[in-house]
Design a protein around this nucleic acid. Structure first.
Length: 194
DNA sequence: ACGATGATGAAC
DNA sequence: TTCATCATCGTA
């Protein structure tokens, strides 16, 4: 046995440094990465299919554009930490923080394919589309807010070797931010065709 | 097209 | 303390 599964797993985990870069670049690179939730002897995996970037203090679509508040302060912190909040009184939104400390930015996870550990889409696996459905499927809530995206917290990202051909990538306007003036037209929503 | 449902942030 | 708003979803 030359391979050691636990070490191999560590190597696939995206390090926090992955998120301390350009938010727009990271958002595109997250497509095809695997979001993993391990809880109570169970592991759920989701191949990320759709994300949305919220980048910087001036982005009017971003919670950060009015400055620091109790809710959004994690966006101003270190990269690679979870930002969860409730919208419409019932849906948890899952975001990962990006960029350096004091630069507020995050990426919203909006869609993905349920996956096996081998990085394959389940047979008949249908796309889970919508940020509220993602957190419901994975069983996520406020508990993870501000925690780092590492195996020890139970919620992290892996690179399972899936690469998205650039021609398959789709760039759109962000959803549900029509109030955001000129920022509403930014093509910060990224997804891909299989 | 619309109601559910509650935290958030700004105004007063 | 009140109030409008909200990075949504299921049902119609």
């Amino acid at each position: 046995m030359k391979s050691r599964p636990s070490i191999h797993n560590q190597e696939k985990t995206l390090p926090l440094s992955f998120f301390d870069r350009s938010t727009i670049m990271i958002a595109q690179e997250l497509l095809g990465k695997v979001l993993v939730h391990h809880i109570r002897e169970n592991t759920l995996r989701l191949i990320i299919n759709e994300v949305e970037a919220y980048d910087g203090p001036h982005d009017k679509a971003s919670h950060a554009h009015r400055g620091v508040t109790p809710r959004n302060q994690v966006m101003f912190g270190e990269a690679g930490h979870w930002y969860l909040y409730l919208v419409y009184g019932m849906h948890w939104m899952l975001n990962i923080t990006t960029g350096p400390k004091d630069y507020p930015a995050a990426i919203l996870i909006r869609g993905g394919y349920p996956s096996t550990g081998s990085g394959q889409v389940h047979s008949g696996g249908t796309l889970i589309s919508g940020p509220g459905k993602i957190t419901k499927y994975l069983g996520l809530n406020y508990f993870y807010n501000t925690l780092p995206a590492l195996q020890k917290t139970g919620l992290w990202f892996e690179d399972c070797g899936i690469t998205i051909p650039p021609k398959n990538m789709i760039k759109k306007k962000r959803i549900g931010v029509d109030y955001a003036e000129k920022w509403k037209d930014k093509l910060y929503n990224f997804s891909f065709l299989l």
